[in-house]
Design a protein around this nucleic acid. Sequence first.
DNA 1: GCCAACGTTGGC
DNA 2: GCCAACGTTGGC
Length: 152
Amino acid sequence: MRYWLMKSEPDEVSIDDALAAPGQTVAWTGVRNYQARNFMRDTMQIGDGVLFYHSSCPEPGIAGLAEVASMPYPDPTQFDPESPYHDPKATPENPRWMLVDVRALEKTRLIPLADMRAAAALEGMQVLQKGSRLSITPVTKCEWNYIVKKML
DNA sequence: GCCAACGTTGGC
DNA sequence: GCCAACGTTGGC
């Protein structure tokens, strides 16, 4: 069992949107970074814990808890010429971008980014490192427990 | 393979 | 809107 932090712009998909989706599950479309893709394709397992993070918004921070809900499969938006995530180099025979489904479990109080930065226990958290822009980052069991048990 | 130019992310 | 930091592209 692993743990992850996954960023979503709430204008695109908020924790409320995810909770309202059929099965409380959304396909994590639009990731166009190889490292993030590789996490979904190679490392994630069904049932892994997910911190649902709101980014690029007035109040960035952790907004809910979720879990990995599927095996990896090709991101359908890469094949859609109408999609902003269209990738002309990808074909169904040779998909470039893989994703997983994410099932929202609960909306939590918002844990602001500033509070995360202020927590000594989270000093090493990958998402908090200088210059980190990855939209999907691993979270250690210690970090997960601290956030879920001490900050919520 | 190098690396400059460009594009993107994301907090502020 | 700004800008630091990082990733990608493409000429050579």
